[in-house]
């Protein structure tokens, strides 16, 4: 069954604030085997002009992914999560994320389109600090296999 295109443009309430932890950044960097000192050493990060250790470029996906559960589980969307794969991902930064940031995510369904028997759902996630400073916009395309009009 095709997903409901009327949901294009639906924006969900802001996520609870996510506090970026220094140890979480270090743990994430270690999990990808990355020893860049800007991820681990506060003094090095500050020497580069950052307030604290910097998050790797894809770190934001961890809490954006969690916040997007409101979209994935929206009963109006009717998505079968077991049939979903990640098609595309992008990040556009206003500034790097650093430890200590308190970030809020606002998710919007930007597009739903059928392609080759699948539905492609584009979700835009706008990440800002709790005081409203823009930080990063992430966009992901998820593919719901076999739901699109043939």
């Amino acid at each position: 069954m095709a997903l409901n295109p009327d949901l294009i443009g639906r924006t969900y309430p802001p996520s609870e604030p996510y506090l970026v932890g220094r140890e979480k950044i270090r743990e994430f960097a270690r999990s990808i085997g990355d020893e860049n000192p800007a991820y681990h050493d506060v003094a090095v990060a500050q020497g580069l002009g950052h307030a604290d250790v910097v998050a790797p470029p894809t770190f934001a996906f961890t809490f954006v992914f969690a916040s997007a559960a409101v979209v994935i589980l929206d009963p109006d969307l009717g998505l079968d999560y077991t049939k979903v794969v990640h098609g595309e991902q992008s990040f556009v930064y206003s500034r790097p994320i650093v430890a200590g940031d308190e970030l809020v995510v606002i998710n919007t369904i930007e597009n739903i389109r059928a392609a080759a028997g699948n539905d492609m759902i584009t979700v835009k996630s706008v990440v800002s600090t709790t005081s409203g400073e823009p930080v990063v916009v992430t966009t992901k395309v998820i593919v719901a296999r076999g739901t699109g009009a043939q």
Binding site: V54, A55, P57, T58, F91, V92, T139
Partner: peptide, 8 residues
């Protein structure tokens, strides 16, 4: 790493 402003 802060020099990466876009990535897709």
């Amino acid at each position: 790493p802060g020099a990466v402003v876009e990535y897709g």
